[in-house]
Design a protein around this nucleic acid. Sequence first.
RNA 1: GGGCAGGUGGCUGAGUGGUUGAAAGCUCCGGUCUUGAAAACCGGCGGACCCGCAAGGGUCUCGGGGGUUCGAAUCCCUCCCUGCCCGCCA
Length: 424
Amino acid sequence: MHDARLVREQPDALREGMRRRGKLETLGPLIDRAEALDRDRRLTIQAVEERKAARNTASQEVARRKRAGEPADELMASTRALGEEIARLEQELAATQSEFGAILLEIPNITASEVPAGDETNNVVARSWGTPREAGTVKPHWEVGEALGLIDLPRGAKISGSGFIVYRGLGARLQRALMNFMLDLHTGAHGYDERWVPLFVNRESMVGTGQLPKFEEDMYALRDDALFAIPTAEVPVTNLLRDELLDGADLPIAYTAWSACFRREAGAAGKDTRGLLRVHQFDKVELVRFTTPEESAAQHELLTGHAEQVLQALGLPYRVLLLAAGDTGFSSTKTYDLEVFAPGVGKWLEVSSCSNFGDFQARRANIRYRAAKGEKPRFVHTLNGSALAFPRVVASILEHYQNPDGSVTVPDVLRPLLGVDVLR
RNA sequence: GGGCAGGUGGCUGAGUGGUUGAAAGCUCCGGUCUUGAAAACCGGCGGACCCGCAAGGGUCUCGGGGGUUCGAAUCCCUCCCUGCCCGCCA
């Protein structure tokens, strides 16, 4: 969520931001409307507060007269009339505020200046690592996964539906291995503080990180309990500090957490959904950082590097994409996607998205810090990235490390955790 | 799930309709004192929003929301959370 003052003080910066995202046509009129509502809203606030001040003064006078034993009936009557007027104005104000607020929640963040304008065709490859195998020279992961007894897609579909995976044997153990490997790397070498969090959160948390109100149809919801299944650990982990005032000396704060992630993927049916490419439930290790505005850009590079370390340790070729404005997530100012190569499907698969949200999430979630004693609280900057999402990593392992006989060599770092050197 | 007791500022904790944004203590900041520090003493110390160049003024805020009243931390309704007892249970 943007600062309401941005609408009034820099509406053109807002418009330029939307233009770079390719959203000016749809959101431009909303910004115009917001400007008008803001003017209206402030005038009404003034009118209400003026009357409230008068009422407060009058009430004091009533109190004084009552103490002094003087008559106050007439003053009480006139004050009651004032109260009715206040109620009417407040109703008007509530309507204006609610429309203004709703618009504010619909406007995405403004991307950083170095982010290319335009849609995803303007994404740029920032760097790449490793040597991809030639596409089409190995079997896709769903074939080897099934042949090696690691994945059971039909039974996943039977018990839950398509897009729900059953892992078997070493395939199941591989999930545990990845979880431990990634968490150990981040809590060890990278210095993150581990959290283990609820997989269902309330509406406030979903609003806090920006999934709601705009993306409600993408979420699994438990309607009877007003809870949502988390689409990423970003939601519970970032919201850990919701409504808190942090000590600047404690920044940056770095959390890592494993979680299952749930996504309805509404509208994605049939599109790159085979095997493990797009599933409704998957495991992921997430990195979240809270930092100052001054440091957030550097912290973003650091966090992205931590995610890359996972791929390097696994020996999987990948590339880093700087997303263009139009492809950058709603709340993000700048996003790097990490894509691992899967030679069996012949595609780069997104396994991580590392974003700097600036103060956009912090404002929604009300996460502030005080830089030093006596200073005003400021909003922190929040960042997060997957490091990494499991299914596509598994897909890449099964394809990149596939041998001619159909067996799969286990990456060195996973051997102690998996207990075998080769999946056969 | 049922019953009971509670939710007040960074913390502890007063306050049951009228100068209470809120006593007191602690923490913290500034000062006096001291070679320095501690102690003692003096002073200061929440946040959001609106108007204003500023100085300053105003509104709101005692778990959330709604209501009663001229006026609500205080009364009523509702929801959430915490503790205890009972029930149920991996």
